[in-house]
Design a protein around this nucleic acid. Structure first.
Length: 200
DNA sequence: GCAGAGATTCTCT
DNA sequence: GAGAATCTCTGCC
């Protein structure tokens, strides 16, 4: 699909990312899900972002690549996946925090070593979908094993504070986390599932 | 060369 | 709700 919606406005792109179908093909196995939760990270001026103040290191180098680049980092032994927006002048990106599983449930369960809670968190979905820093950091969306295509449309979008950055001063209060209202496949909050899981 | 932190997850209380 | 597990990179000594 056309990725040009990621070229200019990161927060608009983050909201547009909800409902897109994310597919990975790793070790010959396909897994996919609808994106249900994302967070925006606004680079230079965002104290919670890895690129705050223009900080540029070996670890966050991929944030300075063009929109459509995949940035995978590890922390506490888990992998987190971001889609980079804009360009080298604006090192911004979208953290993919949760998806609703569609395809490859069995391999997700196998990779996770459990039957539920497969993709309702940033470290969980990368584990379920086989995403690893050493394999996928720096690749381009839709030019390799990680693909997004059109999916579903959220009935409504909920804005909330980002998770895990409580000590980032004013940036802690930014409402840059977006979830599909009524979809239970999201991190942290226990959401009462809507009849259609929040899709229109 | 090493201490410490981090956009997390799991388990137990 | 708190604490441990666990891994890489950064920053400072």
């Amino acid at each position: 699909m056309d990725l040009s919606f990621m070229e200019h406005d990161t927060l608009a792109a983050a909201k547009a990312m909800l409902g897109k179908r994310l597919t990975t093909i790793v070790e010959g196995v396909t897994a996919s899900g609808y994106i249900t939760e994302v967070e925006g990270y606004l680079g230079i001026n965002d104290k919670a972002a890895h690129a705050y103040g223009g900080r540029r290191t070996k670890k966050n180098e991929m944030m300075y690549r063009p929109f459509g680049t995949i940035y995978v980092y590890t922390m506490h032994g888990h992998h987190c996946m971001n889609f980079i927006t804009r360009d080298a002048e604006s090192p911004e990106g979208i953290l993919i925090r949760a998806v609703e599983p569609i395809e490859g449930i069995e391999v997700m369960q196998q990779r996770r070593g459990r039957m539920d809670h497969l993709t309702d968190g940033p470290g969980k979905l990368t584990q379920s979908m086989g995403v690893k820093r050493e394999l996928h950091n720096g690749l381009k969306l839709n030019e390799g094993p990680i693909i997004i295509t059109e999916g579903r449309t959220p009935e409504a979008i909920v804005e909330s504070k980002r998770i895990g950055i409580a000590n980032k001063e004013e940036a802690s209060d930014y409402l840059y986390r977006f979830t599909v209202k009524g979809n239970p496949y999201v991190s942290k909050d226990r959401v009462k599932a809507a009849a259609n899981l929040g899709w229109s």
